[in-house]
Design a binder for these strands. Structure first.
Length: 457
DNA sequence: TTAGGGTTAG
């Protein structure tokens, strides 16, 4: 730009001195064209990037088509990178393939940025073979290319390929370690995730990033490791992530709650400055209270959150209804449900219904629970909520409803033997041993074996 | 101005 500018000034000077010099005019024209194109391309690319990265990747494609119609317009590696990114964000494999061909034709088949963006795009679109092919054909790869391949395999649950990429890649960095570690936590292999974390930090001396911390949290709370919570807490404090990234703090408070330390969770919550608390922060603490049966605190937090101007979402409502359910605040739980539907126009999903039925069932308000179960739209209807109701019938010894609910469950799913056993237990509980036996025999005839208890809530 | 990493429902 500086050189072009200086050349132009010089030629303009010459032009003033020799107005009839045709060659000088041509040179200026040429330079201005070049300069204009470059400037224009930068502007186009900038807009393309904004579209590609934001919520309107389709706009990036329209813009590119518009550019294509301009005669003599050329594109650089930035243009193609952004466009490939847009295709990835749209998960449009066909579009990505077209851009791939165009970029190759334009001579970017050996450009590291463009080719890496292609690996990433194919991976995001689920075209693992195409991604691998682009990767294999690249003359030179860097750590970003390797990481794009590695994280792509993780995205599709192919831990074996990801591990193989990790083992082969030179210059593993924090993204590579975090990617693999995340893969292990996703596959519920928490001990291996922990061991990777330790190898990375202690033996390789690579400092975990905020993303590493976010990735290791599921391992922490699945293994109920409060000690590790404290370690991450201290590290987050020292590294500055606690102050800079509210997501880390949200995860930390959630992990403390899930590990059974609601006191520590509350301390983390209070450590977060009020202006930094977001909807997830509030939802996490409400959910924490729910886990510990602290319905009053959950309800109070909900109202406090509303007073800060934040709008609750379906997760917030589920958490507060769960809290009411576990803490026995039945009417308040019903009020929250009504508020969610009427004031916030949130359509309840099966988990909201399940929580509500569980809450009413625990309180022995079985008729209301049954009424709600019947109101669940067929398209989201789930046999699990009826089993929750059956469990409540069993607990409260309601034979009539127990029979009704069982036949409903039988209609929905005939193979589950556990329901026969529950009904049989209901009969036995009120002394109707003949009926109890009859149900057991029916179960045997249908050869439906009882499976281990499983909850979806 | 370009490439890589999952905060809340237990």
């Amino acid at each position: 730009m500086g050189v072009v500018g200086r050349n132009c000034s010089y030629i303009l000077f010459m032009l003033h001195q020799h107005p009839s010099n045709r060659r000088a005019i041509q040179q200026v024209h040429c330079q201005l064209l070049v300069r204009n194109d470059l400037r224009l391309l930068r502007v186009w690319n900038f807009i393309l990037r904004q579209y590609a990265l934001c919520v309107f990747p389709q706009e990036a494609v329209s813009l590119f088509k518009q550019q294509c119609s301009q005669v003599g317009f050329f594109f650089d590696s930035f243009t193609y990178s952004f466009l490939i990114k847009a295709s990835a964000n749209l998960t449009q494999f066909g579009l990505g393939k077209q851009v791939h061909c165009l970029s190759n034709k334009a001579g970017f088949h050996d450009n590291g940025y463009v080719q890496t963006a292609l690996v990433d795009m194919y991976m995001k679109c689920g075209c693992l073979v195409d991604a691998q092919k682009v990767f294999d054909e690249m003359p030179k790869r860097n750590s970003v290319t390797w990481n794009a391949l590695l994280t792509g395999f993780i995205r599709w649950g192919d831990l074996v390929s990801a591990q193989s990429v990790f083992d082969r890649m030179p210059g593993k960095n924090v993204v590579s370690w975090t990617g693999l570690l995340d893969g292990y936590t996703r596959m519920n292999r928490f001990h291996e995730a922990f061991s990777l974390f330790q190898r990375m930090f202690l033996f390789q001396g690579i400092r975990p990033s905020e993303v590493t911390l976010l990735a290791i949290f599921p391992a922490i709370w699945n293994l109920r490791d409060v000690g590790f919570c404290q370690l991450v807490h201290a590290y987050g404090e020292k590294s500055g992530y606690n102050a800079s990234d509210v997501r880390v703090m949200n995860c930390l408070l959630d992990a403390y709650a899930k590990c059974g330390s609601i006191g520590c969770a509350l301390r983390v919550f209070e450590e977060i400055l009020d202006e930094r608390k977001n909807l997830v922060t509030w939802t996490s603490i409400i959910s924490g209270f729910a886990m510990h049966g602290m319905a009053e605190e959950a309800s109070k937090s909900f109202r406090k959150m509303q007073s800060t101007g934040l709008t609750p979402n379906r997760v917030t409502f589920l958490s507060v209804i769960n809290a009411c359910s576990h803490g026995g605040l039945v009417d308040e739980g019903l009020e929250f449900f009504k508020k969610m539907v009427n004031e916030y126009a949130i359509i309840p999903d099966i988990k909201h219904y399940g929580s509500l039925i569980d809450m009413l069932g625990r309180a022995g308000r079985l008729e209301e629970a049954e009424k709600i179960a019947k109101e669940i739209p067929d398209d989201i209807g789930n046999v699990v909520v009826w089993r929750v109701l059956l469990g409540a019938c069993s607990f409260h010894g309601n034979v009539e409803m127990g029979e009704r609910v069982t036949s409903k469950i039988m209609k929905m799913e005939k193979e589950y033997g556990g329901d026969y056993i529950l009904l049989s237990n209901i009969f036995a509980g009120v002394g109707r041993y003949a009926d109890s036996e009859r149900v057991r025999r029916r179960m045997d005839r249908k050869n439906a074996a009882k499976v281990t208890g499983l909850s979806f809530f």
